[in-house]
Structure formats: structure tokens, C-alpha cells
Design a protein around this nucleic acid. Structure first.
Lengths: 202, 202
DNA sequence: TTCATTTGCTAACGGGCGTTAGCGGGCCTT
DNA sequence: AAGGCCCGCTAACGCCCGTTAGCAAATGAA
């Protein structure tokens, strides 16, 4: 599904710098001149490497979508208890979010500046991803491993909690990404009521 | 804290229309000419009512902050079990989010286009609000009514789940705002493990 | 050596931006 | 009838936008 021929280094650097700016200021509020300056270039020079401003956004958004799908697939194609698959999917999701939190923030917030038909395609991918979590949870409920009155609701809540991460995650913080992931999973699976030990259902 | 002298009706209408546009396209990508057209005006005419584009954003962001604080205060100043106060705070938060989901979306996403010092002030308010939830949860843990390894983490997760609501809430949907609030509270308090009935700790 | 590729420059294009100045008509109050 | 306000208009200001054209220096392969 992904493929992604390796970008020339300069192009990759443009993407990285643009991603940081898009995250900090938003896509619309970031100008090509600003991006060029951050790279030590003139504005026109950017167009030796890219076709348009939106092309950068497109690559960032769809590239990250690929990462999320790849992580989910790797976490769930094995035959394990569904609750464990869900936990692994959470870990995979958090790994993507923490591995490139700037791109993740752009992925989460700036996709609306994609023009059609890319925007529609992006939303379809996002829906599909969300649906995968929903179905995983539904399978867990059917198997008696999970409990919720509404799997769709639960999936929404779960992803919302995870996706807030790029807003506060700091790579130099105390917790490693995997520790964060497990703590998030713990929180989401166990809730806030006091009831039992922390490693799973009795 | 709030005060808020009632705006003249035309000004309030500008705020409402701008809020809808800011939500749909983002602050930076919404032009004053576009806003004027949506109101059946010419661009210059807007300035009979407002001082600047940012003034609108400022009013929306800080007005909603007031609403959130007012809701929280009303939900928690009584002497009730802490877990119940938390539930009420969740309900209050969701009421604000659903009562004006467009303004909420702007509040959540567009505050970064405030210039200093407003931006810093806004973030201080947001931190204070988050801190109030954190302390409420911490009190609940101390009282043995709640359980979490990390109240700060729990507050982050909780608010993230709630704040995703404006992205999918539709006023014409099947669930009323209060039903949504209770379901969210249920989900967040109970988690996804199967363990017991749905009304609280044993 | 030659030649294509990569990379960057300068200059400019058409157009949109937020905002202001000045004007004029309605409308309410007195 | 008069004065003041509310409201909207037209025209324009200086500035920044994304993008393109054309050119040149460096680089590396043949």
C-alpha cells in the first residue's frame, strides 16, 4: 500500500521544515517565503523541488496515513485475544504519534486545507482507520473480552484521547513512547473507578 | 468573572457568522471579504462594528473560556462526592461544547492565531481549567472514590475525549447533549473492561 | 571533455489581504 | 426641525501571497 519512493534529501528536508512550520502556525498562515527563509533559500527556489505548497501538505498527510495503517495491520494480523490486539493497536498508534509528532499534528489538524479530491480521499482513509478500531472493539465485545454500550462511541473516545498526545508529548520527557502507550491503554481500558489490579480482567 | 455586556445585535451576528467560517476554514484562511459577503455586506462595512479581525477571534475564545469556567464552578461548588462532582463537571463541559459547537471548535483549534499577549493569557486560562480537572481527580483518588496512577494523565485523557465532541456532534442526532455527556462519563469512568453494572463502584 | 542534472538565484506576474478615510443616507430622540 | 448615531457604501492604501520564467553555477557520469 505505501511504496513511497525515497525522496531526494533536499526535498525531504523541505518537507520536514514545512511540517514544523505548519504545525506551529498552521498551513494557511505559513508562507512560502517564510519556509524558504527557514531553509536559507529564496521563495522561488523551492519550486525546483516541489510543484506547489499543497503538494507538501498532501505528502505529509497521506504519508502519515500510510504509517497508521501499517502500524495497525502489524498490530492486529496475528491470532491473539482481541483485547490484546487492541492494546497493540494503541501502542502502534502512539508509536507513530511520538515518532513524528509534528507530522502527526499536521495530519490531525491541517488536512482541511487539502483541496478536492484529496480532501475527500483523506477523510475516507481516516474513516476507514476509525472503522478498523470500531470493528476491533466490536469483536472484543462479541468475544466477551471488552465491554461498552456502543463500540462506535468507544472508538471515538479512544482515538480522541490518543490523538491529543502530540499536543503535550515532549521527546525529552520522563516517559518513553511505549510507557506512554501502555499507560494510555491502561487508562482507557480500566477507567477511573477503583476496582482491581491493573493488568486485566479478573 | 464573566460580565460580558450584551453585544449589539449586528455585532453578535458578525461573531456568529465569523465563528462558523473560522470553524469550517480556519481563521487564517477566512478573509474579511468572505465574511462580509456571508453577511451581505462589503468588507469595509465590517469596521463600523469591529476593530479588527483578531478582535472577533479574541471574543470567541475568551467568551467560551468564561462559559467553561462558569459551568465547572456550578458543577463543583456543592458538597457532593468527588466522583459525582467530576461527573457533573463532565456534563457541564459537554453542555458548553454542544450548545455552541462551532464556537467550541474555534476555541479548541484557532486560539493560536491570537497574537501576544492574548495568546499567552488564553493558554494560562486553559492550563487553569485543565488544572481544575486534575485537582478534582486527585481529590477523588485521595478520597478513594477514583483510581488512576496519574491524575494529570487522567485529566489530559478525559478532556481530550470530551473535546473531540465538536468534531462529530450533530444537533439533529439521536442522543441529547445530556445523554452524550452521561455516556462519555460512563465510558471514561468505567473503561472498556467488562466488570460490573454501569452505575458506579460496587 | 562534454553534457545533463541538480540546485539556486533575480525579477516579476496577477491577485488577494486587512484596514482606513470619507461620505451619505436613514432613524430616533428632543 | 434638528442633531446625533447607526450603518453601510466606494475607493484606495501598502503589503504579502503563490507561482513562473529565465538564467547560471556546481556536480557527477559518460
Amino acid at each position: 500500500m505505501s511504496a513511497a519512493a525515497p525522496l531526494r534529501p533536499r526535498k525531504a528536508q523541505i518537507d520536514r521544515t514545512a511540517t514544523a512550520l505548519f504545525r506551529a502556525q498552521g498551513f494557511a498562515a505559513t508562507s512560502m517565503r517564510e519556509l524558504a527563509t527557514a531553509l536559507g533559500l529564496e521563495a522561488g527556489s523551492l519550486y525546483s523541488h516541489i510543484k506547489s505548497k499543497e503538494e507538501i501538505l498532501h505528502r505529509v498527510c497521506f504519508g502519515l496515513a500510510d504509517s497508521f495503517f501499517a502500524g495497525f495491520a502489524a498490530a492486529t494480523h496475528e491470532t491473539a485475544p482481541v483485547a490484546e490486539q487492541l492494546r497493540q493497536a494503541i501502542v502502534a498508534h502512539v508509536r507513530v504519534l511520538t515518532h513524528d509528532s509534528a507530522a502527526s499534528a499536521v495530519f490531525l489538524h491541517e488536512w482541511r486545507h487539502l483541496s478536492e479530491p484529496a480532501r475527500r480521499e483523506f477523510l475516507a482513509l481516516r474513516d476507514r482507520y476509525e472503522g478498523a478500531f470500531r470493528e476491533l472493539i466490536a469483536r472484543g465485545v462479541a468475544a466477551g473480552e471488552l465491554h461498552t454500550p456502543d463500540p462506535a462511541f468507544a472508538a471515538l473516545t479512544l482515538l480522541a484521547s490518543l490523538n491529543w498526545l502530540p499536543n503535550w508529548y515532549r521527546p525529552e520527557g520522563k516517559l518513553t513512547p511505549d510507557e506512554i502507550a501502555h499507560r494510555l491503554a491502561e487508562q482507557l481500558l480500566s477507567g477511573l473507578w477503583p476496582h482491581r489490579g491493573s493488568t486485566g480482567p479478573a
